[in-house]
Amino acid sequence: MIALNFKNIDELKDMHYKAILSHVNAHLTPKDIASLYANVITLPGFEGYPAKYNAKTDNYTWLKEFILADFNTLKKWVAICATKLRFQQFKTIYLTKFSNGYDNFVDTENTYNAYVLLEKMDISVCPYCEHEFFEIVEIDDVKRRTCEFDHFFPKGDANYPALAMCFYNLVPSCIPCNRLKKTRSVTASPYSSDIEKQSFLYPDLEIGVNMETVKQEDCCVQFHAMGDMVVNEKTLALEQRYAHLAPNIYHLLKKRQQYPEEKLEEMERLGINTKDQLLLDFFGNPREKAKGKELHTKMKQDLIGY
């Protein structure tokens, strides 16, 4: 429901690719690498690579192009050549190294795994639902995470195990979303820039209604999904999961009715405070600052435009 636009995206991708390259060089035999190469170059976009692998001249550009392929390229591969995405090497890396505890690492330098990527992404809420926080906690001196990396295109053996370590197939996800999704489809990816335009959250209230006459329980959010978000809403039960927020919505709408733009501008003219500071005091951080850090910023923006 929120787009993943990381400011440090180049750093994230570089770190991800170099860790996988380190693993490939350290743990795969020349025969394994040749087999991996043969599988990758059958995909659209790799037509310029020679059919026969040559270890002496290999600079691993094929590996980088595969691992860092953008979301639209992954979507194209899944649509037109799904059976070519069944090779297992990257799924093995994911299960045994990347996502196998905080003290297992992909690279030989022992610096990179799911915990490190999540920390570097610097995101605190689930982009699928914006309804759950991410945390890394410590229990009995062992780090645990309350989030997972969802494979937008499932990594199951009968699905797309080859994409298990592709950067744009790894979506930081809360456990509820990942468990609800499992291997079922969602069609809107947080790596798609237009995902935020495909939903609108609103209460089923009359326009201009006096909030003093409204009951809290009547402020349940309605989730209007469009395009690819229709499947996401159904699969992840988004509207149902927002149902208990009626009191929050009620108080937000009531306060916004008490302090419309004209009132805030008047208070600024009277010298009470600046409009921006008043907005912050009454409604918290604006979305451009809160997105990825606080819950329900899409809902707040849709409800009160802030």
Rank of each mutant, 00 (worst) to 15 (best):
Leu270Asn: 15
Leu253Asp: 04
Ile304Asp: 04
Trp62Gly: 02
Phe46Pro: 03
Gln277Trp: 14
Arg179Ile: 13
Glu119His: 13
Glu262Arg: 04
Leu238Glu: 03
Lys293Asn: 12
Asp194Val: 08
Tyr168Gln: 03
Leu21Phe: 08
Lys263Met: 10
Leu295Ala: 00
Glu265Thr: 14
Val142Phe: 07
Tyr160Ile: 03
Tyr250Gly: 02
Leu295Arg: 06
Ile195Asp: 00
Lys234Asn: 12
Asp302Ser: 08
Asp276Arg: 13
Phe133Ala: 09
Met121Val: 07
Lys197Ile: 10
Tyr53Trp: 11
Ile304His: 01
Pro247Asp: 07
His244Arg: 09
Leu279Thr: 02
Val231Ile: 14
Pro127Glu: 03
Phe283Glu: 04
Asp218Trp: 02
Tyr37Met: 06
Asn248Leu: 12
Ala55Gly: 06
Ile272His: 08
Leu36Asn: 05
Cys129Met: 06
Gly305Asp: 09
Glu109Ile: 03
Cys129Ala: 09
Arg256Asn: 13
Gly48Val: 03
Glu233Arg: 10
Ala26Trp: 05
Gln222Tyr: 10
Glu135Gln: 14
Phe46Met: 08
Ser173His: 03
Thr96Asn: 14
Met211His: 02
Ala237Leu: 15
Phe283Val: 06
Met211Asn: 01
Glu132His: 13
Asn169Leu: 08
Tyr242Met: 13
Lys182Arg: 12
Thr42Ile: 06
Glu119Lys: 15
Ile33Phe: 02
Thr111Met: 00
